[in-house]
Amino acid sequence: MSDVALGHDLHAESHHDYPGLSPDTSTGISHSKLGMWIFLASDCLLFGAFISAYLMYNGRAQRGPTPSDVINIPFTSTSTFVLLMSSLTMVLAVSAAHRGEERRTRLWLIATAILGASFIAGQVYEFTTMYREGLGYTTNIFGSSFFSLTGFHGVHVTVGIILLLILVSMSFRGRLPKAKAEVVEVIGLYWHFVDVVWIVIFTVVYLIHK
């Protein structure tokens, strides 16, 4: 019990002295980070359901355009690249936040949000093009399952952008000091998850089943 006095300091300075290690939890992982991982594990099954429904219905459309009629690989490859690069800027923001470089953190966060927004803009363009080519949400079973799946992903990206913008505004008001770098990290986890989901969707939906 000799380390009782240490207790206060450990807690108050936890993020300072022991980056990534919370001494006030049983495992050393902070609540927020563990909670986020648990949520992401759960989200895998949400996307899994939409992906498997898409796969099951692939090739069953009774009318209207099929995937090979509307899917534009070069365009989507570009937006895939954009989303991938947003993961890089995100991880650079996290790394800068842990070093306490607030200005650089902010810049990388803004870059991430812009790249994410470009991805969403690309998705809007893709959807409108498909609609002009005759594939609406209700046109056939391919349209429904394709738009639902990619739309759900798009909603996740949009939520991520909002979270990033909140982080940026917090940073401008000086509310993201080094001690709070973990907030950036936890939101970063969400952002990377959205990226890995897109890695799966891009390969399975666009490349294999085009």
């Binding site: 380390d3 009782v4 807690h11 290690l21 001494p23 939890t25 049983s26 050393g28």
Partner: peptide, 15 residues
């Protein structure tokens, strides 16, 4: 203040 250190598994790895 609970001292959790003796139940933390692999604490050093995350530093």
């Amino acid at each position: 203040i609970p001292n959790y250190q003796h139940v933390a598994d692999g604490g050093d790895a995350a530093v």
